[in-house]
């Protein structure tokens, strides 16, 4: 077993020990730890490649990332981590997904669900939406991101076109709230099956209930759990 501890300059935390194992379990632990410590995209890419080269299966890697992301989410909830850390975890997750995706596809893995995502009309902010996109994609969802300032009609049109399991909407401004309400109503008219999930700075659980949305996500992490529940997938194994 090779052991090597170095230090990441900016974060000033010990870098995850590199362990090359025959059974892959320790390297998965390394991947998870790398996520929890937010060691950065280059490091997670390196570990992912090592894992894949040593025969670790793609879905095991996705599971390790999920566990890592869950820990990052908890740290964010506890105010140990901050928005920039969420962004970093999203960047890292995206890097791994790009490496792992071709192997998942070659193994004929189907996405666990399809999500139509956008920021509602009257609002052009997209940090929250992009984080949700990253997190859901990493967790095996197919995400169709139709951008910002999306009208209820455009959402409806895309529901009919893509037939998603979930419609996820975000807004930063209060001006977006009536548009969310209109979109939820219209979505139910065009599809009896699509579930609606909303989030964003001014959004509350009460507002979600008031407009008839199926779920409210406080942050990107909660949106993963909600989306999994909505498609009846609590695990990704």
């Amino acid at each position: 077993m090779k052991s090597n501890i170095t230090y990441v300059r900016f974060f000033n935390i010990p870098k995850t020990k590199v362990t090359i194992m025959s059974n892959g379990s320790d390297i998965l632990e390394n991947v998870k730890e790398c996520f929890i410590k937010l060691e950065g995209p280059d490091r997670i890419k390196e570990l992912t490649m090592k894992a894949l080269d040593s025969g670790v299966e793609a879905n095991q890697l996705i599971k390790a990332i999920k566990e890592g992301l869950d820990e990052v989410g908890k740290k964010y909830e506890n105010s140990e981590y901050f928005l920039s850390d969420l962004v970093m975890s999203g960047v890292m997750a995206s890097e791994v997904t790009n490496l792992v995706k071709p192997r998942l596809q070659s193994a004929d893995s189907e996405p666990i669900g399809k999500v139509l995502l956008g920021t509602v009309k009257g609002d052009i902010h997209d940090i929250g939406k992009n984080l949700v996109n990253n997190m859901l994609t990493t967790q095996g969802f197919e995400v169709i991101d139709i951008g910002v300032d999306v009208s209820p009609e455009k959402f409806a049109e895309n529901i009919q076109k893509h037939k998603p399991d979930i419609l996820a909407m975000s807004c930063l401004l209060t001006a977006g709230m009536p548009e969310m309400s209109k979109t939820v109503q219209l979505s139910k008219k065009v599809s009896s099956e699509v579930k609606t999930m909303i989030g964003g700075r001014p959004i509350t659980k009460e507002f979600a209930a008031e407009i008839g949305a199926d779920a409210y996500g406080r942050d990107a992490f909660e949106s993963i759990d909600l989306a999994r529940k909505m498609v009846g997938s609590t695990t990704i194994e």
Partner: peptide
Amino acid sequence: TPVKFVYWMHKNF
């Protein structure tokens, strides 16, 4: 942009 800010803060402080 937030993504590049965070990435470069890590990589190229």
